[in-house]
Amino acid sequence: MTDTLLEVRNLRTSFPTRDGIVRAVSGIDLTVARGASIGIVGESGSGKSVTNLTIMGLVPSPPAVIEADAISFEGVDLLTMRESRRRHLRGNRMAMIFQDPMTSLNPFLRIGEQLTEPLLVHGKASRRAAKDRAMTLLREVGIPDAERCMRAYPHQFSGGMRQRVMIAMALTCEPALLIADEPTTALDVTIQAQILEQMQRIRQEHGTAIVLITHDLGVAAGFCDEIHVMYAGKIVEEAATDDLFAQPRHPYTEALLRSVPRLDDETKAEFLPIRGAPPDLSQLPPGCSFAPRCDYRLDRCERVEPMLEPVEGRDSRRKSCHVDITRTQPVAANSTEESVP
């Protein structure tokens, strides 16, 4: 794709702690085209949130150590950028919405004040124009009584309404990139459906690229064109959504898909868990991080770290695994007991 919005090369974010260096993100490449919808899927601790917080420049360093070969946004290098210029981008060209809308809204300020703030801070509109814009946005995200909403405080709203306000706020400056970190996880499913639909519409109408971080494969399947699966700070597989679900090529993706019960599955078959637990990020194994839990493990997997490489010569489809799982039988797992802490 030619119209690249965000380009990240070999991003590494680590946190020195008493127990050693926690490698939250260890070498991530990510390319986001204008107007794309990209899913980053993984379990807690896989580094999906830290990746995006780093891109937004919201990881304080120090203490964090951030290294990368390149992070460029709209052709500008973010790595060497001064904080003051970065602040000019944040909330303006790139915006983020978080999981818990209550903790991301200021409880002391009326919704109207919080919504107009980005426009005023970035000097994009007069007070009056900002108010008009805020009202338009509130209607756009499905809040019927925008006038009253502007005067209300966050606590007067339900979770779904608050998340709508958050989305409206993120959109005030018409960003080119919207990072949504588990935006619907705290919400009920019927509200989740409404919010996701709203976000999809915004993407289509405004051409905003959306990076959706989620642990819910179902949400990613319905929302994203392209999915990156993360495990222990790395991308282990990336593919167009249809390809990924049709035939996962990394053992972790396959195991993850298998472990999730589906609403359309009528069988009472046993749940198929992934044995063991994710690794300690301060003591990552030398080879593949997933090897201890993997059913396809070879001797090599424990020594040599696999690289993220194209599958079938297609650049859009990549995996980091030594094994071709489509041609290999999994080794039967004989130990189901959890590892000793």
Partner: peptide, 10 residues
Amino acid sequence: AIPIPDPEKE
């Protein structure tokens, strides 16, 4: 409203 991890079905 419950998402199904299957893009075609979705």
